[in-house]
Simulated scan of single mutants.
Amino acid sequence: MNLQLGGIHHVSAITARISGNHAFYTRVMGLRLVKKSVNQDDPSMYHLFYADAQATPGSDLTFFDIPRAAPEHRGNRSISRTFLRVSGQAALEYWAARLEDNYVAHGPLHLRDGRLTLDFEDPEGLPLSLVDDGGRGEAYPWKGSDVPAEYQIRGLGPVMLTVPELHPTARVLTDLLNMRRVRAYVHPDDTTAQVHVFEMGEGGAGAEVHVAVRPDLPRTYPGAGGVHHVAFRVPSEEQYHAWARHLEAAGVHTSGEVDRYYFRALYFREPQGILFELSTDGPGFATDEPLEALGERLALPPFLESRRAEIEAKLRPL
């Protein structure tokens, strides 16, 4: 079987202020809350999923609620920037004005790797960038957003990894995950550093990993405002099982197959410590609630449903 990943599936980050996080991503960023759930490994904390109107794989930005988490100390061995796709310069100009109206500082519009880009941070310091994807692929704008449909976030763009050495990570991306190394560019924050671009599937902004080599940086100390892991798209359960066998045969220590109810997951760390996940596109977030009502109630996987009253009693209102 020719194992190929389809692109970025989701990015999961950490928040210490879940109510403010919910307000920022739904009201300022105009994303739809498509699943209000809990961390399946620790149901005392929320796990929120923001996405497009259809909860499309590749559009999910998710957050684990860890109220006492200290802020992340940035450095290398981390997922250091998350890109969100929009279409066209007019969209980026709209977002520059919208961020200013909401008192969110941002950098100037600039070209990064040949694409017009706008850098900013969320209220807890999570590094984000809006990037022009050229209108490639389908878009599913959400009618409940006050962001005009043509300017809405279309999905996840590349993720940037920052590592002290290129080779260990590059080898995993190419030899293990069958990505293609396609180009490199100068790091915008350090002209002595290179960023190497790897693509998967059909390529494009939603199917790239950018690896920045920064041996000068200290190691990241994880925390709020940082990314926990990135997940890559697996199109079918058949391929998912094949990927599990492939990683086992390569001697990679993994979580084993994990059923997250909305998708199947497989976790492992690349040699420099960054957590990767392989996730199936299905069955999807409409498994347990209608598409038009996604995110309106607390959704629990079947194995937690019997504990609903206990779990709800411990969660703070959003």
Rank of each mutant, 00 (worst) to 15 (best):
R115G: 02
W142T: 03
L33C: 09
S236T: 15
R233C: 12
D189K: 04
D216Y: 09
V163S: 02
A224P: 07
F120Q: 06
V11K: 04
M179F: 14
V11H: 05
G125Y: 03
H106G: 01
K314E: 15
P127V: 01
Q272A: 04
S37H: 09
G30K: 06
E237D: 14
L278K: 15
P141M: 00
G155S: 11
F49R: 07
Q239T: 13
V182W: 01
V230M: 10
R154A: 02
S87F: 09
R308C: 14
R171P: 05
R245K: 12
D52Q: 05
L3D: 08
L298S: 07
L217Y: 11
D133R: 06
F24W: 02
A293M: 11
D52M: 04
P218V: 05
G6R: 08
P71R: 11
N102G: 04
L278N: 14
E238Y: 12
I311M: 15
A286Y: 14
H47K: 08
N2S: 15
K314N: 10
V195G: 00
L217V: 09
M1R: 10
V252H: 12
V147P: 07
L111R: 07
V234F: 03
A286P: 12
R260A: 08
V182C: 10
G75Y: 11
V186W: 12
A224F: 03
T162S: 03
L177G: 06
G7E: 03
P271W: 15
V163F: 10
L275A: 10
H22M: 04
T174W: 11
V227C: 15
S145I: 01
E150H: 02
R81E: 12
R264L: 15
V195E: 12
S279I: 01
E296T: 15
L61E: 04
Y262L: 07
R307W: 13
F120G: 02
I18R: 07
F263T: 00
H246G: 14
E165A: 08
G284R: 10
G206C: 05
D288N: 12
L166W: 10
T220W: 10
I8M: 13
G273H: 09
D65K: 03
T191S: 15
N2K: 15
D119F: 05
I18P: 00
Y151H: 13
A105Y: 04
E208C: 00
P141T: 07
Q194N: 06
A299R: 10
L126S: 03
